[in-house]
Amino acid sequence: MTVPKSFPLHFPTLTRVNNLDGAATAAEDLKIYINQYLPLVILGDFPDSETMLTNADLLCTQAGALPTQRILWLNDEGILAAVMPELDAAIKSGFPNKVYSYDNIRALSIEPASMKAAYLIFKDPSLSPDPKDIRKTLSTFQMQRAFNAAIALIPDTRDL
């Protein structure tokens, strides 16, 4: 039986909000993380992060949340740069025809089996050419939608 790799916590009280160990192993660790969990990856710093991450943690522990739901908050520049190719590929795989700017992505949920991005949240939605994205800024509302989208994509054959 494979022992799951453990990842560092940003805050001791928020047990579902993880970080990666460092830029050197970030790309590899990201793959392991996605494989192990159902992640919402949040990129960079943002306002009122404490409240938002607390709520994100609640979304992972509330009734109806998958046991594997996790938040991966990446705010280290080195790590961000290291995981960019992997995440960009996930977005392209999940939204093949979507016009977007990677720099404008604040968060994305990823379906583990296919490694495809399931939902995108933007730093500034007005920069997205798709009018449907206009309200997709980081909020508990959008984080819940991101998790819902990823859960909906899980193949029926996958174990919990």
Partner: peptide, 14 residues
């Protein structure tokens, strides 16, 4: 709960 239950809740919520 089964995976189908989680998916059902996700669909209904969304």
């Amino acid at each position: 709960p089964t995976l189908a239950d989680y998916k059902e809740l996700a669909t209904q919520s969304d």
